[in-house]
Nucleic acid binder design. Structure first.
Lengths: 337, 337
DNA sequence: GTGAAAGCGCTAACAT
DNA sequence: ATGTTAGCGCTTTCAC
């Protein structure tokens, strides 16, 4: 990186002013006369002056970059959240540095290090599936860097969070399926130690209980990828008791499940109803189209970024930890009766 | 951002050394005695010393951040490319700063500004659909910042590019469909001024010509979103001459087209074959599953990042501009005969 | 083998 | 209204 941009000093020299005057003039400091201000700004514009953000941040000890850690960018939900984060951060002139953990605990630790090394002033994170310790997240706080979790929160670390109302989303979806006549609804979830999965399972059970339906343990499975679904779903369909509905942890599993159910000779939704979670673009291309719970990823991103930036800027010194709950809504399509 | 990390000076003071010695010791400078080196490094580790990257970069005038501009993160293809970029950049200890143009020319200009302001040492970009001028990209080069285009390249700017072999991909797909008996293949593409669309159209026409099939202008349409497809496809299906195959610019259009073709009472693939482009996860959940051209997004990301970093580091001073062509391959599923 | 001094580009007292 | 000085945290001559 050779010398490519002109500096404050260059301007100062050219205009026979001091660097501080130029600095003030550029930032519209009222102490500077209109005349010099215009002179300086015109010169700066003409010569495409760009303040050196590095130097500025070094001097002022504040940094306008925030880091984001997501499990995977390819998931519709996370890329939507990211769009929200980017949008909100952009409004506040913050840049975002992105790391993917790829659902890998080690990579997640490395991501935290990377972001801390880059001196971000805050981190937005959604945990990887394989993370069961949280020392690396505690490190963030210990270094006085703000931290906000979104979606896949880490309960061991005491900090702000933005989560989907998973319980409510699941409750409503299952309640709806019951209302259409389903009586034997299966739940395809994730590892029970994942908060979001647990909450959805409780919402699922809550809806069954409300409707006085039995909770059948053999209908509750850990099945959150296509690969698992490939064997799990056929197994369930050939068991003694066959579900008449599947409530799935995400759209991918739901869409695969749909394929497998049809392949096994069942009609959807007449014989078996299927509901997903996310409401991404998969929902429109399956046959029948997929009923799903909309998670409002963009809004989650916006809220999380806002929360973080408020912390960084020291605004709204709310007492203790903030927990934001984002409501979902059920989008009914043709995979449910 | 209050004082949160210890500095070189702090270590120097604590150990009764000079800052320069500590600096050297940390970087394993051979001029430093083993003894002090170990002393310093142990102390640094114990007190979680993190070199201030900002100061380092300011001092050395080199920066290890690269910027990426993509139209939209939510598209499977771009998020895959990004994963590749992140992977390769990570290996070289580069960070990535991401901007989305949202297919908006103005936002794209702003993104370039943002990245330049952040003093990135290079930019990877894929143009927005609405971009017809390229002064902002020329600016990048004029500021001595490296620039590599990927996928949606900008031919007006003379710099490295990594592109998919769109012609070849389209040619093979169409040639394959002809081999299965299709004779009236339609092409649903983008704006003709988009390079990738144009190349695919030429590949499409090339394959028809090779097979001595007529090129029917009424079968070549600009249709690259679900919204356009919604009216365009039914129109084509009720025209005097109905296509017996659709070759689509991306998987989304193909998947929608599939729905619309079935809704109109045609069988897929018996009556009409359909082929997409990208080979994302939509392909597995449609019914029938979707034949598609795999673009190898991850590899594109890797190659683009490598090209850019090589430029930044001044390695491989290849003469002139480099053009990398990434081969595609056709993944045949059940939407084609 | 280690230290002193200067400086990257900027801002913020403290002058005048 | 403007200039002087110092310093953010680091690296890099140039000394010794």
């Amino acid at each position: 990186m050779s010398k490519q941009y002109i500096t404050l000093k260059d301007i100062a020299k050219a205009l026979n002013l001091s660097a501080s005057t130029v600095s003030r003039a550029m930032r519209n400091n009222p102490a500077i006369s209109e005349e010099t201000r215009e002179l300086v700004q015109a010169f700066a514009k003409k010569h495409k002056y760009k303040p050196n953000v590095l130097a500025m941040q070094l001097r002022t000890q504040r940094n306008t970059t925030i880091g984001v850690i997501v499990p995977k960018l390819v998931h519709y939900f996370f890329s939507t959240v990211l769009a929200g984060i980017e949008d909100e951060a952009g409004k506040e002139n913050y840049n975002i540095l992105i790391c993917q953990s790829n659902e890998d605990y080690k990579k997640e630790i490395k991501s935290v290090q990377t972001l801390l090394d880059a001196r971000v002033s805050g981190i937005l994170a959604s945990q990887s599936k394989t993370t069961h310790e949280y020392g690396h997240f505690q490190d963030v706080l210990d270094n006085n860097v703000s931290l906000v979790f979104f979606d896949r929160i880490c309960t061991g670390v005491n900090t702000d969070r933005v989560v989907v109302d998973d319980y409510d989303g699941a409750f409503n979806a299952v309640d709806y399926m019951v209302s259409t006549g389903c009586k034997k609804i299966a739940f395809l979830g994730s590892d029970a130690n994942m908060h979001i999965s647990n909450n959805r399972r409780m919402g699922y059970e809550g809806a069954l209980r409300k409707n006085k339906l039995p909770i059948n343990k053999s209908f509750i499975k850990e099945c959150d990828t296509q690969i698992i679904a490939q064997t799990m779903v056929p197994d369930m369909l050939s068991a003694a008791e066959v579900p008449d509905a599947f409530f799935c942890i995400n759209d991918e599993v739901a869409a695969y499940c749909l394929q497998l159910v049809k392949a096994a000779g069942f009609r959807v939704p007449e014989d078996i109803s299927i509901c997903g979670f996310t409401n991404g673009y998969l929902t429109e291309v399956t046959d029948p189209t997929l009923t799903s719970v909309d998670q409002h990823g963009f809004q989650i991103g916006v809220e999380a970024a806002r929360l973080l930036i408020d912390r960084i800027e020291g605004r709204e010194t709310k007492e203790g930890v903030v927990n934001k709950l984002i409501k979902t809504n059920l989008v009914v399509r043709n995979s449910t009766r």
